[in-house]
Computed example of a mutant assay.
Amino acid sequence: MRLPDADGGWRTVELAVPRDWQPHPVPHTSRIAFAAAHVIVDPRLENVPGAPAGVDWEATLAFRRHLFAHGLGVAEAMDTAQRNMGLDWPAAAELITRSAAQAREHGARIASGAGTDHLAAGAQVPLEQVTQAYLEQVAHVEGAGSQVIVMASRHLAAAATSAEDYLGVYTTILEQVSEPVVLHWLGEAFDPNLAGYWGSSDVTVATETFLGLVRQHAAKVDGVKVSLLSAEHERGLRAALPEGVRLYTGDDFNYPELIEGDGTHHSDALLGAFAAIAPAASAALTALESGDVDTYRAEMAPTLPLSRTIFEAPTFHYKTGIAFVSWLSGLQDGFAMVGGLQSARSPLHLARVFELANAARLLPDPDLAAARMRLVLDLAGLRA
């Protein structure tokens, strides 16, 4: 396969022999592992910026079965599914209901995002309205039979003037949830609208506020997912968590070492990257279940360059790479996204994603993947 370089040249990539990845139809036991899954659109619907999300439900749910088959749970209706970037609440609510039912059928784990995105985008609303919006979505997630992930809220970030404002809203939520939840701290790299979350732009100060909340309500917190892309911060935070509260890594740059752990503490996983590398992640976690750390490392190693490329700046456009790998892998018929987000990455970036997915042997039909890569290059006017 000939791939373009930024300097106008071309490089040749040898297509890798497909690997026969082994299924793991029950949840992994070495670590709790969720893949934050994307949605697949119906090409007959508009799916242009500002239009309601038009989801291909059959293909979207089939992708979740692909994740279940590798022992992964699904983190549903999260930012990977384009929450706050095209997936409106009516579509997210239906997605949660459908996906939770399917998870029950397959005996798989599912946790789903509850936020405030049914409020008008950009609206400045009082804290009481933010709290009520959260509670409405929490009720829907619990009613669907899914664990709740309390997502970071743009509306809360806009309304809050102090750490106490955040603590007040989250305390009300935690006092009313039926089962322990996952608290999600989404960093500025993933959503610039969330800068200064927890009441401070100083991460150390914000972390103390966050930890105070978790410690006070530890019985209602299953775990925390912190997506700040700092392995050092994550190691410090997980060591400070109350006993029984998990750290679900959201670090798509450093997940192999964080999941492996340091001999005292380890991270579980709730990662967008796992949607792209599900077979390899499953093989690594299977090795970890038998205590084979060397094989775990060997399985994870080829996935890290791919993940770091998919999540490179601007990081919030990583969703395009997740959908692209799914298309290259034959898990969806078209490369199209809610809001037209397939255009958010350049052809050269997509060529690097193709090259690294190929190197990790994650393309089950290399000829199909190469043909699809050529379509992208042809459409861009790039011909060797």
Rank of each mutant, 00 (worst) to 15 (best):
A120L: 12
F68S: 07
H38L: 09
N84R: 14
A35M: 07
M85A: 15
R98S: 09
P52T: 05
R109M: 12
N84K: 06
G86L: 04
A69E: 14
T60F: 01
S112I: 12
P90R: 08
L87F: 04
D117R: 10
I110H: 07
E76T: 13
V74P: 02
D79K: 05
V74L: 04
L119E: 11
T60D: 04
G54T: 03
A92M: 02
R104C: 06
P49I: 10
T60N: 06
H38N: 11
R109P: 06
G50K: 00
F68C: 05
A36D: 12
M78D: 08
E105Q: 15
A53F: 00
S112H: 00
A93Q: 13
A81I: 01
E94P: 05
A59K: 04
M85I: 12
A35Y: 01
V55L: 14
A121L: 12
V48Y: 10
V48Q: 13
D117F: 15
E105M: 10
G115K: 02
F63P: 00
H66W: 14
P43V: 02
A53M: 00
L61A: 09
L67H: 03
I110F: 08
A92P: 05
I96Q: 03
A108R: 13
W89Q: 11
A62V: 08
A101P: 02
I110S: 05
R98W: 03
R65H: 12
A108M: 13
R83A: 13
F63E: 01
L67V: 07
V74T: 12
H118P: 05
P90H: 07
I40L: 15
G113S: 08
F68T: 07
R65P: 02
T97W: 14
A59F: 03
G54W: 05
D117P: 00
G50Q: 03
A123R: 05
A108E: 09
G122T: 03
R104I: 06
Q102N: 08
G73H: 05
R44Y: 12
D56V: 00
R83Q: 13
P43E: 07
N47W: 03
Q124T: 10
A121Y: 13
D79I: 13
F63W: 08
E58S: 14
E58A: 15
G54N: 03
T60K: 07
